[in-house]
Design a binder for these strands. Structure first.
Lengths: 346, 346
DNA sequence: CCGTGTCAATACTACGTATGACGTCGCGAC
DNA sequence: GTCGCGACGTCATACGTAGTATTGACACGG
């Protein structure tokens, strides 16, 4: 019986399949598969291999990812869930992570948690449906963790509110110490706190560490020296104005550089000069920090390292390498001192 | 013969399949499939449907996306290729596009063209391998178009350098007229041009339109009034300093708000006051524009509209609705006049 | 009591790939 | 001459789903 009878018409469809290549090259589909997956050693002669490779190239053949997945059970696609892609910082993370993922043969699917309140459910569906192999969640909170528990083996948390759960974490405690010591060293005794509320978990944790350090430095803290805000520039500026009006602090720490920018605007409205009347410290060290004038003193996150480490850990987990799962990878932060902080006003 | 004999052990694997649900519910796999895909009308009794739905929920069943794709031939995943995700503007586009895609049941895969010189090849592979159904390319250039031609039916261009190829385009010509007229109206006779070089195609086009309008306004243009730069803040600032030094123009148009920011820094270095000594106009109207002081006069792009339109067109194309393919959708831009432009110095 | 029509549910196959289990062929050794 | 064996290939199957063809049951008109 003629070989390939069943598949004789398989090639009539628009897409090029391994059968089509096999037919064109005069070999069997198995051989094509062996060649394409690089498992030809010892089973396919060099001549045949070259023939198949050439034919595949000529026909523009690319293995069907879905069929491959169906057969092997693993699709090489990751997802990154970040709070807000519009934030340049997360854009940075995303790019770096995508790069690392790509180096490992993975593609990256985007999830913006701020634009979809039900992203957790969606994520669970995608993982269960094998659309993605796993997901890295940046700055996730407790609620998310609860919803994602059914697929927890496929999730890796970065800077979660609970260190224990993190795969990769930031050494926020040390960063806060640097910030407070820097400001205290400049003579500041009253330090305000301006926070983003997008990720309650991470926010709360940062604030807690901040309070710890304020206390350690022997300083006081008054609840009126603290405010939260969304990321929109207008609401943030408004909130900053409110904060500056109500609190008589001489320096303020901002959860995020964008909030620092809003603080600059508020200070301008109120006629307060940075850093003479008010010192400002930011967080993230995005480009904006050096666009502001005076340039912003801020906590820098080694984005590259965070992204790389998280993706590599995720992939290791997915492939079942439990070897190096000895607690979270803790990344140290850096305080970049620039022009926005100065001696406390007399 | 006992039904389901072949699949008796199919459920032993960790993942929940339609067979598992069928077995648990005491029906056939076909029935489960019919219920899950919503095609149960008139074929499955209400009681059975409810039973299956309940069972599926209980077991946490989610159809395997790959198997579905393999069967139906289409995976609902799109890709967005943007020049640089770290640019807040593209972050915005990305978020909006993701939202629209999601509303249509599509997921979004990220491609950052700046971090991968071979993204075109990769994209072709992904499309051929059916990993993604199609791709929207923002600000792509001629070279990309050439490389992507083999899969052109799956590509939609936004602001390509050649209007004819675009699925969605920006009315840059009109925008440039607004810019030039605005500046000319303020008495500026010599206008500089500061351009990003990340997407040569889009850049060249913008510049051409700019020149057209300068001419139309009866103004001169000197090659020394023009410079290009990458996006990094430091190189951009340096280039801006060079530009301001070499050109004796009184106003400058910047291809991108970030370059405008660099121009602000350069002006500060050179002791030139904006807008008294120099008027600056940007492009994109990202948040940065209002963080700068004075606030930046800039061309605003209706991101929402661009993103929505492009995704919808892409999906329509993929589904074969050729009905509304009457040329590109041209989106009008807006000039937001703020504090960075003022009367030309005497 | 037999067509005939309708509703409900099932059997079975194809989608494209990877891969373990089988040939087959040539050649050297016994 | 045949046995063993390595080198090279192919066969057949399963992955999980969608959907078409089919069966079964039941009611109703003739």
């Amino acid at each position: 019986m003629a070989p390939g009878k069943r598949r004789a018409n398989a090639a009539k469809g628009s897409s090029v399949t391994s059968f089509a290549v096999a037919e064109a090259a005069g070999v069997s589909q198995s051989t094509v598969s062996l060649v394409m997956s690089g498992k030809a050693a010892g089973r396919v002669s060099k001549a045949t291999r070259l023939l198949v490779e050439e034919t595949a190239r000529r026909l523009g053949y690319q293995p069907n990812a879905s069929a491959q997945m169906l057969r092997t059970g693993s699709l090489k696609t990751l997802s990154l869930a970040v709070p807000n892609v519009e934030q340049p910082f997360f854009g940075q993370v995303l790019v770096r992570a995508e790069l690392t993922a790509r180096e490992n043969g993975y593609s990256v699917l985007l999830i913006d948690t701020s634009s979809d309140t039900r992203w957790c459910e969606r994520l669970v569906r995608m993982i269960r449906g094998r659309l993605i192999a796993g997901c890295i969640v940046y700055a996730g909170d407790v609620a998310a963790e609860r919803l994602l528990r059914p697929v927890r083996d496929h999730i890796l948390y970065v800077e979660a509110d609970d260190v224990a759960r993190s795969g990769v974490d930031l050494n926020v405690a040390a960063a806060m110490r640097m910030v407070v010591e820097h400001l205290a060293g400049l003579g500041h005794r009253r330090i305000g706190y301006f926070a983003a509320d997008y990720a309650k978990g991470a926010f709360r944790r940062r604030f807690r560490y901040f309070l710890d350090e304020v206390e350690r430095a022997g300083l006081a803290f008054d609840p009126r020296w603290q405010a939260r805000s969304t990321f929109g520039l207008d609401p943030a500026t408004e909130n900053a104005v409110g904060l500056l009006r109500s609190g008589d602090f001489t320096a303020v720490f901002c959860d995020d550089d964008l909030l620092a920018a809003a603080t600059y605007r508020a200070a301008r409205q109120l006629g307060r000069i940075i850093p003479d009347d008010l010192s400002v410290v930011g967080f993230n060290d995005v480009e904006l920090a050096r666009i502001l004038w005076p340039e912003l003193t801020t906590v820098a996150i080694p984005t590259e390292k965070v992204a790389r480490s998280s993706v590599e850990r995720m992939i290791a987990t997915l492939q079942g390498d439990e070897t190096d799962d000895d607690g979270p990878d803790i990344v140290d932060l850096l305080l970049r001192v620039r022009g926005s902080t100065g001696p406390a006003p007399a």
